[in-house]
């Protein structure tokens, strides 16, 4: 330490050093301090994202033989309801006719079920408006009706009326056999 300096000048700003060099070291130290805080901020934010065990949530298998034509079964999947609906030929027909209607979120009925499995509709059962669970068979299109804010879905799960912006989501799933699906 500079203990022996005599006649000290307590103000560093009146000396004749090159100001650029002097400022650089302070700015660099300040930037490094910000970098330290910033570097620590990310772990502190990322910890709120889904953890390893949550991400590993199992896919589920479901036995379709329990669902009668014209009925739906609600299963819980990743904490959300999942609609598995066995559609009648009439409901399928209505859904295909809907392909030509003026749709808010255009999609053909064909694209919303697995090939050759037109009667099976698997959908995430949360309204795309604000996440309520639509009721089965409600609304003028015979699909679903959301009691919260009046969104109406058709028998393909497409939004037809009300505030919801999107069709009901189709999750990733596959047929393991004619009567068994694996969801997720």
């Amino acid at each position: 330490m500079a203990d022996t300096v005599v006649g000290a000048n307590p103000d560093p700003h009146v000396t004749g050093d090159d100001p650029d060099r002097r400022d650089f070291i302070h700015i660099a130290a300040g930037v490094a301090a910000l970098g330290l805080v910033g570097g620590l901020a990310w772990p502190f934010i990322d910890q709120m994202n889904p953890a390893g065990d949550t991400l590993a949530l199992a896919s589920i298998e479901f036995d379709l033989s329990k669902v009668e034509p014209g009925q739906q079964v609600v299963v819980k999947w990743r904490g959300k309801p999942l609609f598995v609906r066995n559609r009648t030929p009439k409901e399928i027909q209505e859904a295909i006719q809907g392909d030509h209607a003026d749709l808010r979120d255009p999609a053909t009925d064909e694209s919303r079920h697995k090939p050759g499995k037109a009667n099976w509709l698997v959908l995430v059962g949360t309204c795309t408006h604000l996440g309520c669970v639509p009721t089965f068979g409600g609304g003028e299109y015979g699909g679903w009706f959301c009691p919260c804010h009046g969104s109406v879905y058709d028998t393909s799960g497409r939004i037809r009326k009300g505030p919801a912006p999107k069709n009901l989501e189709v999750p990733t799933y596959a047929f393991l056999s004619d009567t068994k699906v694996k969801i997720g």
Partner: peptide, 18 residues
Amino acid sequence: FSILLWFSYKRIWRNVAH
């Protein structure tokens, strides 16, 4: 960071007897 701060510190204090 410590090295940077060390030089910054020496620079700020260079004219103060302490």
